[in-house]
């Protein structure tokens, strides 16, 4: 809960395609206070009246950066105590769902639409930390998740 009493949703995506897709989900959370987390500070200029955090950009090739980013994400989650955590990818989204679930949030993973052939690496790893685990491709959906529930197009 934020100070104004509105429930908080933490919206997390690395910069680029993940970010563009995440922004398209915004209208699903009109009753919430939105807090965005990404890897590029200039994204803030696109936002109106939302919380905003930048975390270190890290991919699988740098363990040290990855640890740093995970800690940064952890503190954002700890400080804001979101009711819901949502991500479209990639690594920062994975950690936000892990920590979010740990601290009692409901977590939503919408795997990037770029992954036509198979779920993304972070998308596969996040499975057991996602309360709602979605693919954006019907042909990748399975009976007991990932589910297909539409796409950002």
């Amino acid at each position: 809960m934020s100070r104004r009493g509105k429930k908080v949703v933490l919206m997390v995506a690395s910069f680029g395609g993940h970010w563009v897709q995440l922004r398209r989900l915004e209208s699903a959370f009109s009753d919430y206070k939105l807090i965005y987390v990404t890897t590029e500070k200039s994204c803030q200029s696109q936002l109106d009246n939302c919380g905003f955090y930048v975390v270190t950009d890290a991919a699988l090739d740098s363990k040290l950066k990855m640890i740093r980013m995970a800690l940064e994400v952890f503190f954002v989650v700890l400080k804001n105590r979101p009711t819901v955590v949502v991500s479209t990818g990639a690594a920062p989204g994975f950690f936000s769902l892990v920590f979010g679930l740990m601290l009692g949030a409901r977590t939503i993973w919408v795997d990037s639409i770029a992954n036509v052939q198979q779920m993304s690496v972070s998308g596969l790893k996040v499975r057991r930390f996602a309360s709602l685990w979605l693919t954006q491709w019907e042909h990748l959906a399975k009976k007991n998740c990932p589910y297909y529930r539409g796409k950002v197009l």
Binding site: R24, L25, S27, A28, F29, V84, V86, R106, I108, V110, S131, L132, L134, Q136, R149, G150, K151, V152, L153
Partner: peptide
Amino acid sequence: SCELEKLIDNIRSFL
């Protein structure tokens, strides 16, 4: 854009 609306609706009902 109906696929996007569907996705948004589904997330809403999940919430």
